[in-house]
């Protein structure tokens, strides 16, 4: 569904240039990936596709992605110095380029390594809007417009019910919900967009569910 254009989508957003899709979008993909990974990576590798690969250098797409992973937002004037900042934090970063017509024109795979490993893919879909499409092989559709709960868990009957019942008990309204899994009885994923903030108490409850092995609560992006 087309998102409502507010006045501030037109007179705004305030961003670091030069391109809303190739710079601000890159920062947002990196930022969401960093939040999903949940820690500053020791090592991060970016595989840029198509237009991100061919025009990314001149648009600062590489700096934007890295800055985002390191927690910078789209209007942070230090994005330009992302490489130096990464070196200061001892983050080993690298970039590679690829062309693939099956991928979105502005897309990237991010390989993160820290206390564990994770692979996240995202697209910059225009006007600074982004979409995280894949986490560790599970399909997602995370764009930062909502507070989002991400769960990876061992597939078992009743999981969706348990999670939604828990959210309902806290009076949290689900805007959208997306599930995916690797195979029956194996591992599965849930991406849940909420109309309000996810309280810590819910996360504590979720941590008690044995089958759940990864929980991330991503706050709505400041726009």
């Amino acid at each position: 569904m087309e998102k409502t254009k507010t006045l501030f989508d037109i007179i705004g957003p305030v961003i670091i240039g030069p391109s809303s899709s190739h710079t601000a979008g890159a920062v947002r993909i990196g930022y969401l990936a960093g939040k999903i990974f949940g820690e500053i990576p020791k090592k991060v590798r970016f595989k840029l596709y198509n237009s991100f690969a061919t025009t990314g250098k001149g648009h600062g797409t590489d700096k934007g992605l890295l800055a985002g992973v390191l927690g910078m937002d789209v209007d942070n004037e230090s994005i330009k110095k992302a490489f130096n900042y990464a070196k200061k934090l001892n983050v080993d970063y690298s970039f590679e380029h690829a062309q693939d017509n099956n991928r979105h024109p502005n897309s990237v795979d991010i390989f993160l390594e820290g206390s564990y490993k994770m692979e996240i893919s995202g697209n910059s879909v225009g006007a600074g809007e982004v979409c995280i499409t894949n986490i560790d092989g599970y399909r997602f559709n995370i764009n930062g417009d909502y507070n989002t709960l991400i769960l990876l868990y061992k597939d078992k009957p009743g999981m969706v019910y348990r999670v939604s019942a828990l959210l309902q008990s806290k009076n949290l309204n689900i805007a959208t919900m997306h599930c995916d899994r690797s195979a029956k009885g194996e591992e599965a994923s849930m991406g849940i967009c909420l109309d309000s903030m996810l309280p810590d108490s819910v996360i504590e409850e979720l941590e008690k569910i044995d089958e759940v092995y990864l929980i991330r609560s991503i706050e709505v992006l400041k726009k």
Binding site: I11, P13, I15, P18, S20, K80
Partner: peptide
Amino acid sequence: EQNLRMGKIVACPTAGSC
């Protein structure tokens, strides 16, 4: 020119027309 040197601008409506 601030935009192309990775400075802070207001997209209006876009960065290329800021």
